[in-house]
């Protein structure tokens, strides 16, 4: 069984992000980490491998040096191999163009299951995973909190989170599943794993290797375009209320009613 895990290196939630004064872009502090939901996806692949049988786990990302860091984290956790999709033509792509590249690379890999995070912290869109499945004509289930493979590994029972509840879905393999919090707790890479990952060879695939024309990848292949960036609007200065509890409670209720008019 071959499981591919799509991963992405993203800014840490503590990293500062500054919008340029002219709105043309953002400056991101150099504090990156493996996307949280992707770490759950890697963990799940390793747990399936741990259940026995002949399972190979391949980690895949698109991007340059930052991508390599994501792959090394996945390898350190215990993945078998890593693939970096890297070509100048891939730059500036939206989710559509990114999914196009990933799908083309996966097409040649004979995968039985694709795992990914439910969304990446940087854009929180959660679009790439299902798009990859669509391009591969494979079913997809997002926001997955439980995966139970059938003994013959031809299908799986999936639990998916929905508002205030869950859905239980039976799906045939190959399938793409996106990991939601609650699926598992990702392991911390062991020291031996980290050392092994540093030496591991990372397979690189460029545009020619995946066999796509330059017109369908990167900026050229994108559907969406960012016109400009904005700062998050600032909240007015806080009104602090201190003193006797009974007094300040009366005050805050009064303010919510008279000033904010929300109750």
């Amino acid at each position: 069984m071959h499981i591919a895990v799509l991963v992405k290196q993203v800014p840490d939630s503590e990293a500062t992000v500054q919008v340029k004064a002219d709105g043309s872009g953002v400056e991101i502090e150099d504090r990156y980490t493996l996307n949280f939901f992707d770490s759950l996806a890697v963990e799940e692949a390793l747990r399936i491998k741990g259940q026995g049988g002949d399972v190979v786990v391949t980690i895949i990302t698109l991007g340059g040096q930052k991508g390599v860091e994501a792959l090394r984290t996945g390898l350190a956790m215990g993945a078998d191999q890593a693939v970096l999709l890297d070509d100048p033509a891939f730059a500036g792509g939206d989710e559509y163009a990114t999914a196009m590249v990933l799908a083309a690379a996966l097409k040649g890999m004979q995968v039985d299951m694709i795992l990914c995070g439910k969304e990446a912290f940087d854009d929180s869109s959660g679009v790439v995973g299902p798009l990859v499945a669509e391009f591969l004509s494979m079913p997809s289930v997002t926001s997955v909190v439980k995966i139970q493979l059938a003994p013959d590994k031809g299908s799986a029972l999936i639990e998916r989170e929905i508002e205030g509840g869950k859905e239980v879905i039976k799906v045939s393999l190959p399938v793409l599943l996106s990991a939601q919090k609650g699926l598992n707790e990702a392991r911390v890479p062991p020291v031996m794993g980290v050392m092994k990952a540093m030496r591991a060879e990372i397979k690189k695939l460029d545009l020619a290797a995946i066999g796509l024309p330059a017109t369908v990848v990167g900026r050229a292949g994108s559907k969406e375009e960012i016109l400009r960036y904005h700062r998050h609007p600032q909240r007015p200065a806080v009104t602090m209320l201190q003193g006797e509890a009974a007094d300040i409670v009366r005050q805050v209720v009064g303010l919510l009613k008279e000033e904010a008019k929300v109750i």
Binding site: P11, S13, A15, T16, V17, V19, V26, I28, F121, D122, D123, S124, S125, S222, K223, E224, E225, I226, L227, R228, Y229, H230, R231, H232
Partner: peptide
């Protein structure tokens, strides 16, 4: 739409 957990916002269009 929000980026980086709302630290920035982006105006996007479908070209």
């Amino acid at each position: 739409r929000p980026l980086f957990g709302g630290k920035a916002l982006a105006d996007v269009v479908c070209r």
